[in-house]
Design a protein around this nucleic acid. Structure first.
Lengths: 345, 345
DNA sequence: TTGAAAGCGATACCAG
DNA sequence: CTGGTATCGCTTTCAA
């Protein structure tokens, strides 16, 4: 045990003014660190006299004191940080909006939302990196995390791990977002409209497989047993690529195409029109996501409208899971998709 | 001083298996916590025998040990966290790409990039919240942070604060992104093409003022002294709003319009065409951002191409600023913009 | 009403 | 080569 060491003769103006701690505030206010903590946290358990409160607040203000989040959460044994991986591929407006809602809603519930740049670490590597931050909850699109990773996170104190994706993951809450449903709607719509040879655009750009694969799979399901065929059409998001595809369009003998989303639809539509392929007469065209841009095309684009669960809902799910540790991880919602028929198919 | 309390008779299977600490690893490996730390950090300062290393690694593996980032950074006195506010309005592809590059580049330099959901706190409030996390650096679009905020962050240990925006901020490094330049290019181009009455679309949606105000200002500068006039055209990103604007188009007597960006250009173009306003004959149309979608329109959209500095450059700036604390905060780069003339104006 | 002190988990100094 | 141990900033019991 050792006496509080009095500071060594300090330079009157320290070169790098150290960041003030609660001890500095205490010293300046002439109280103990405990009192500082009570005052600044409005601790209900302890009554502090008004004059003391004022002195503490003034001292904190004067020093520009900012509490040290890491130290706090180290002491109390948990944080209120909700971690999400930062999307590694530019997120569309739909998903961006969803994320914003989620952040806002979690903020209202007094969580701190943090998007972590996983930087290409994958699987357990990523889970490890996230676990180091000891988040109270993790929300993650499926694909990046296996049951392994979920286990790591839970063991390191995460009270809730929510996976958004097409399939259940052992140990995690699942927000069921099955994009096969998107493809299924589109496929069913086209078949019902009498189309027989359906092309499906698959983006060449990396990072889209998460959606494109299930959407393709959905189309396959929809045409099953109808005698219609499905043709994969890999397509890069570039004008020349679209032109090439359109150039061999007639040889493909397709009478319909589902374009993954509205942006690829726009790309392909222009190329088809440049080749004088009639849309929708010769080829029906259906996009997805129901972006405004689709309504601006000529012909107006038929599309699949996707209803994501609201950010608020997900936030409440997270909150419930955090507060009730015994709560059994479970599937919680589902993605709804329906075709909005317009002029292109 | 108190003897290490032997655990109270522990249940054989703890209900909530506490997250393992380095002490647990030490215990299992039969070594001290110090040794564990040395081994797991590959400490060069100390030689540890190979058998010991193995035992430690095995113990860590078996327990699923994950180090506690907060505890570490508390001890060492700093983190390698670079903090950025999460964009509160869906970021366009241009900015998204920039952010991704930046994240990747910072990751390569061994920083941990974290996007923090500021949740509508503004100014010093936000700076305070960020400072609590004790990031080693902060990268922030201007507008959210004054000299005050910069000071708070620096005082709480941030070695670098980089502001991206049109103006210098006291105490911060500035990545000069002056969007007036975007408007200036567009304006100059239109004036040079003989246009006299120039409309400028201002998005009604909140969160775009950061760009729309300087872009408008830039157009104003460009026409100054040319006799041409500038008319503000507030426009919501909705079809009906565009239709209304187009409906009164001829009464506005404009012969050119700069639409803030390519998406608003597409919106307005369709509405103008529905009103049989000739583009570019009657009205020239210039967008911004040079998105692919502009090239897909008929007529192909003239636009302002923006050259953001690369994420790698900014990452290096951050790194330099972090490593050299004495480095004087300074303006560091600038936004380049040039018109890509196509068919619409 | 206030203060002393234990301790969260990890690191690094200094003895052995 | 390895093990005590003080320490980072903060919260919280327990005593005064």
């Amino acid at each position: 045990m050792r006496v509080q060491t009095p500071e060594p003769p300090a330079p009157t103006v320290p070169v790098a003014p150290a960041t003030p701690t609660s001890a500095d505030v205490a010293r300046l206010a002439g109280v103990s660190r405990a009192t500082v903590s009570y005052v600044l946290n409005n601790s209900r358990a302890v009554r502090i006299s008004e004059p003391t409160r004022r002195r503490v607040h003034e001292a904190a203000e004067e020093l520009g004191y900012v509490p040290h989040a890491a130290a706090r959460s180290l002491r109390v044994g948990h944080s209120r940080m909700v971690l999400m991986p930062a999307p590694s591929v530019p997120a569309g407006p739909l998903y961006s909006q969803f994320l914003n809602d989620l952040q806002w809603a979690l903020g209202r519930l007094d969580y701190t939302v943090v998007q972590y740049g996983g930087m290409g670490l994958r699987g357990d590597q990523a889970a490890r990196a996230w676990a180091e931050l000891r988040p109270v909850a993790v929300v993650v699109p499926s694909g990046g995390l296996g049951p392994q990773g979920v286990h790591v996170l839970k063991r390191s104190g995460a009270r809730a791990v929510v996976v958004m994706g097409p399939e259940r993951i052992e140990g995690a809450h699942t927000l069921l977002l099955d994009h096969r449903e998107v493809g299924r709607s589109a496929g069913a719509h086209l078949v019902a409209a009498g189309r027989r040879r359906i092309g499906v655009v698959i983006p060449r750009e990396a990072g889209h497989e998460v959606f494109s694969v299930p959407r393709l799979e959905g189309v396959r399901r929809a045409v099953e047993g109808t005698g219609a065929t499905v043709t994969e059409l890999p397509l890069g998001y570039r004008e020349e690529a679209a032109a090439r595809l359109a150039g061999r369009w007639r040889s493909l003998r397709l009478d319909a195409v589902f374009t993954y989303n509205d942006e690829y639809a726009q790309l392909l539509l222009r190329a088809l029109q440049d080749e004088r392929v009639g849309v929708p007469d010769e080829t029906a065209l259906v996009g997805a996501d129901d972006l405004l841009l689709g309504r601006l095309l000529r012909p107006r684009l038929s599309t699949v409208r996707i209803e994501l669960p609201s950010g608020r809902e997900l936030a409440e799910l997270v909150d419930r899971a955090v507060r009730d540790p015994a709560c059994v991880p479970q599937v919680h919602s589902t993605l709804a998709a329906r075709v909005v028929p317009r002029e292109s198919g």
